[in-house]
Design a protein around this nucleic acid. Structure first.
Lengths: 140, 140, 140, 140
DNA sequence: GTGGTCTAGACCACC
DNA sequence: GTGGTCTAGACCACG
């Protein structure tokens, strides 16, 4: 029952992706918060822990955490770790904005897939199956 | 009725995205080739044209084109424009590789969505509907 | 007796030769790798070091290194230098291709020699002696 | 007995080599003169003829001829073709100079071979065989 | 300090 | 006009 390995040890960053590593970390944390893996008040992995787990320089993790603080997602207590904010995320954007962002994200997704040799067709097939999974398990 | 504006004038790059602009361009072209918007032998927009259309420095576009040339997607003819290669894309990667890349892309997608305030739930809903569309029209 | 000066400080580029400087650098590095002066995992001269040593713009060196990276010869680590790839070179081209390239190279060699006043006769004499040397010492 | 195909129809330029096409042409002509394929007073192929034979724009050939005129290798008679100069080449450089140039050429040759995947070992083997040929036939 | 990206602007080779 | 090379100089991500 004791999952000794905390969920964030599954995290990984891709050095080749072009996305700055620190932004990948920001995204990972944001996603964990948004998806409910991390709740308001939860303690984040230490900078040192993430640094080891991701194989990334501590400074890089620190930069990511600083950025997250600026965005109001987490709050750092000096010498005591970082915690998810109580009101962690800005209110869900309006349906219109969401739609627009999703469009953009999807376009980029298709483009990036193509960039590394994966056709939109394969992408859709994969997503479809992914969605079925999600429905079966309930949202994660 | 004749939309004089060539399709690539719809292209745009996001400066905030963290992805290097030249890589976004590489992805855009790759996607256009993979999706059949550009066929082998077709002429690409000139470097200068894209530079104007995207509002980036010509050198940046040139860098993207050079990268595409080395990847074997396009071929630049001096004084004559750039063209899609006859054998435009390297063979489809193996199913394993594809799977792995798709996993990575999906993780990044979720993370980026979270990063700009869109929950995975909304994402899935959007993708689902997107997929239905694709099925209706036949894959593009 | 310890020659403090690293071997690559012997490198030089010819601005008059017509061959783009960055391609000359690509060739120099490729040759060093192929000849065993540089081994897989070895660190390359930093971009800035080569830029000083060769007297060319750092960007030019960076371009050469990028090209080498795409060719799979080296790998650049951000903030950490550039290194020779573990599997440094693509498999030796087929005998046919090699032959063809050698033909081309030889033709150009003769032509360039003529271009600067050296007859093929002298060239052959020189090469002959050069080859004898190589045989004596064993191939390098 | 009538070799309908003049020797210069064997000539070819490599667009990928990086060497400007017009300089390749200069070198080809220089080599032909130096090797005795073209003698003082001989008529050169027309610009138009070379343009067709090489698949190169006439202007490019013209530029090469202009360059050759400046170097004193040929002389253009307006409307009447171009001819090899009477005293076509500057006196053979001193042994020292020759040696130095040959060194340089050889280094570049090795580097370029490496650049396109051919090891020095293969290069030497090829040259060796090439030299034997030349000895058999007498110099060309 | 190391590699990477981008800009601005110049000049060249080729059509 | 089109692609290609080079420079100078700025800023960023990473260690």
């Amino acid at each position: 029952m004791n999952d000794a390995a905390p969920f964030w040890e599954q995290w990984s960053v891709e050095f080749e992706s072009g996305l700055p590593v620190y932004r990948q970390i920001v995204n990972l944390v944001s996603a964990a918060v948004a998806s409910g893996q991390l709740h308001p008040g939860d303690r984040l992995p230490t900078i040192r822990a993430l640094h080891q787990s991701l194989g990334v320089n501590p400074n890089t993790v620190a930069k990511a955490y600083r950025e997250l603080e600026l965005k109001g997602v987490i709050t750092g207590e000096r010498g005591n770790g970082s915690y998810v904010q109580e009101r962690p995320l800005p209110p869900r954007p309006s349906a219109g904005k969401r739609r627009q962002r999703l469009e953009g994200l999807y376009q980029r997704l298709v483009a990036e897939a193509a960039g590394c040799g994966v056709a939109e067709r394969d992408l859709l097939k994969y997503l479809n199956q992914r969605i079925s999974c999600a429905c079966d398990h309930g949202s994660t």
